[in-house]
């Protein structure tokens, strides 16, 4: 899986924008968008890892953290 599961764009920025501008806006493009139907025999996490990630399938996990700065 080489997908980053994130997209980005550069919105128009006005010199008169009242808040400090965000130059690049990032947004999620989660794994399910690229799959539509899960292929057979994908690699699996161990049960403990699966619980931690919220999925048995690494290919379905994109994670999320506020540090990414998505807003």
């Amino acid at each position: 899986m080489d997908y980053t599961f994130r997209g980005s764009y550069e919105p128009y920025i006005s010199p008169w924008d009242p808040c400090p501008p965000i130059i690049v806006k990032t947004f999620p493009l989660p794994p399910q968008l690229f799959m539509n139907f899960q292929p057979a025999s994908l690699p699996q996490f161990s049960p403990a890892e699966a619980l931690q990630h919220g999925s048995l399938w690494p290919a379905l996990v994109d994670g999320y953290s506020k540090r990414e700065g998505i807003s």
């Binding site: 399910q32 990630h53 999925s55 379905l60 999320y64």
Partner: peptide, 11 residues
């Protein structure tokens, strides 16, 4: 964890 479950359900 709950966010990831939404991914799985969507699929």
């Amino acid at each position: 964890f709950l966010r990831e479950r939404e991914n799985v359900h969507s699929l």
